[in-house]
Simulated assay, not measured.
Amino acid sequence: MKILVTGGSGLLGQYLNIFLSKENEILSTYNRNIGNCGQYNSAKVDIRDSDALLRVFKSFSPEIVIHTAAISDTIVNSEISPKDVYDVNVNATFYIVKLCREFNAKLIYTSTDLVYAGYRGSYLKEDAKLIPLSLYAETKLMGEVKIQEALDDYIILRTALLFGFGLNHSRCHFQFLFKQLSKNIPVKVFIDQYRSPLSLFEAAKLISEMVKKDLHNEIINFGGPERVSRYELAERLCELKGFNKNLLIKVKLDDMPELPKVEDVSMNIEKMKSFGLVPKPLNEMIKNVIDKAY
């Protein structure tokens, strides 16, 4: 199939390039950083540039668009304005939706588990209450709404905490955690935020399987099989890699009031599994990350 990947140089995008290129014709877009896109058919595109996007669609005519490009910072800083976040996460998404409709392409959209109300309990299903607490989560939910209102063929993935080793310039907290522990440097980890972690490697593999399936107009919890706190995830890493658990400093969400207080957005993934998309156990995913990178 012909698959267009937005955010191809991002944390997930670079893994998607690797997996999707094995059996498909891909066009991977990037903006400021090229990442591994230079190894594949790629184009430098600012997704806020509607003319550039139109040229990409006209020249490539994708059958599937996997839209991962976003501003994902949970705290807006001086370098990123709320308008920037809205333009990228909402306006650009809406234009991509219109192009998908015009060119008859299926859209796979990576949303976030952070759209859920983080105080409603564990293992949330897709119909659980939605209360995004950050501008990032709010704009991702707005993207979901625009997709459902305007498109006839889509898959919305409410993506869990992704962990692993970012390629090239891309980084995530798990990578920072690994490096600190490997140098015997203490690191702070939340004990009271619960997620359903999914490795970058596993996420890309599952999406590469998903594009082969006849799925339409679905909202899917896209995560791992276990509910763990960030501290428990760090403990698992210590156990599997032999790091010193005493280096883990327990902190609570209240200790960092500048961050959105999202306590529990662990997800029920039975719907995902019903489509034959079954992630590996958490320990196996962690071990796979370690073995692939080191």
Score class of each variant (00 low, 15 high):
Leu259Pro: 00
Ile66Trp: 01
Cys100Val: 02
Asn283Ala: 06
Ile47Cys: 04
Asn244His: 05
Leu253Phe: 00
Phe165Thr: 13
Ile75Lys: 08
Ala52Gly: 14
Ile64Pro: 00
Tyr123Thr: 13
Ile156Gly: 09
Leu233Ser: 09
Gly224Trp: 05
Phe94Tyr: 12
Leu237Val: 03
Glu63Trp: 00
Leu151His: 03
Leu135Tyr: 01
Glu138Tyr: 04
Leu53Tyr: 01
Ser229Arg: 01
Val289Trp: 06
Leu133Arg: 11
Leu4Asn: 09
Ser170Tyr: 02
Asp51His: 03
Met210Val: 05
Asn89Thr: 10
Asp264Glu: 12
Glu209Asp: 12
Asp192His: 03
Lys22Asn: 07
Glu138Val: 11
Glu63Lys: 04
Phe165Asn: 13
Lys83Val: 15
Ile96Asn: 06
Lys188Glu: 15
Glu25Thr: 07
Leu200His: 01
Gln148Asn: 05
Asn288Glu: 15
Leu259Thr: 04
Leu12Trp: 02
Ala203Val: 05
Asp84Tyr: 00
Lys261Gly: 02
Ile220Leu: 14
Leu277Val: 08
Ile71Glu: 12
Lys287Val: 08
Ser61Met: 14
Asp84Leu: 06
Glu258Leu: 09
Lys213Gln: 11
Leu27Gly: 06
Phe190Gly: 10
Ser61Gly: 04
Ile155His: 01
Glu149Asp: 15
His169Cys: 04
Leu141Glu: 12
Asp49Gly: 07
Asn104Cys: 08
Leu157Gly: 05
Glu23Arg: 08
Lys44Gln: 14
Ile64Met: 06
Pro186Ala: 07
Pro257Glu: 14
Ile64Phe: 00
Lys98Asn: 09
Tyr30Glu: 11
Gly223Pro: 01
Leu198Arg: 02
Leu247Phe: 00
Ala70Cys: 07
Lys2Asp: 13
Ile290Gly: 02
Ile185Ser: 11
Lys58Arg: 13
Glu149Trp: 01
Asp192Val: 03
Thr6Asn: 02
Glu138Asp: 14
Gly224Arg: 06
Ile249Asn: 10
Glu232Asp: 14
Gly10Ile: 06
Asn246Ser: 13
Tyr136Asn: 07
Lys83Met: 15
Arg120Leu: 14
Thr159Lys: 08
Asp264Lys: 02
Ile286Tyr: 01
Leu162Pro: 01
Asn217Ala: 08
Glu258Thr: 09
Phe60Ala: 04
Glu263Asn: 13
Phe190Arg: 07
Leu151Val: 02
Ile71Val: 10
Lys280Ser: 10
Asp113His: 08
Leu233Ile: 10
Met256Tyr: 14
Pro225Val: 11
Leu237Tyr: 04
Lys250Leu: 05
Asn24Met: 08
Ser266Ile: 07
Asn288Tyr: 08
Pro197Glu: 10
Val88Gln: 12
Ile219Asp: 09
His173Arg: 15
Ile220Thr: 03
Cys100Tyr: 01
Lys2Trp: 03
Arg195Asp: 13
Cys37Phe: 00
Lys129Ala: 13
Tyr15Ala: 13
Val45Asn: 10
Val5Gly: 10
Ser28Asn: 07
Val45Cys: 12
Leu200Gly: 02
Pro260Lys: 09
Ala150Glu: 15
Glu102Lys: 13
Val145Asp: 15
Asp255Ala: 03
His67Ile: 12
Leu107Trp: 04
Phe275Trp: 05
Val115Trp: 02
Asn33Lys: 10
Pro279Cys: 10
Lys2Pro: 03
Glu23Asn: 15
Ile80Asp: 09
Asp214Leu: 01
Ser59Thr: 12
Leu107Glu: 13
Lys140Glu: 13
Ala128Leu: 05
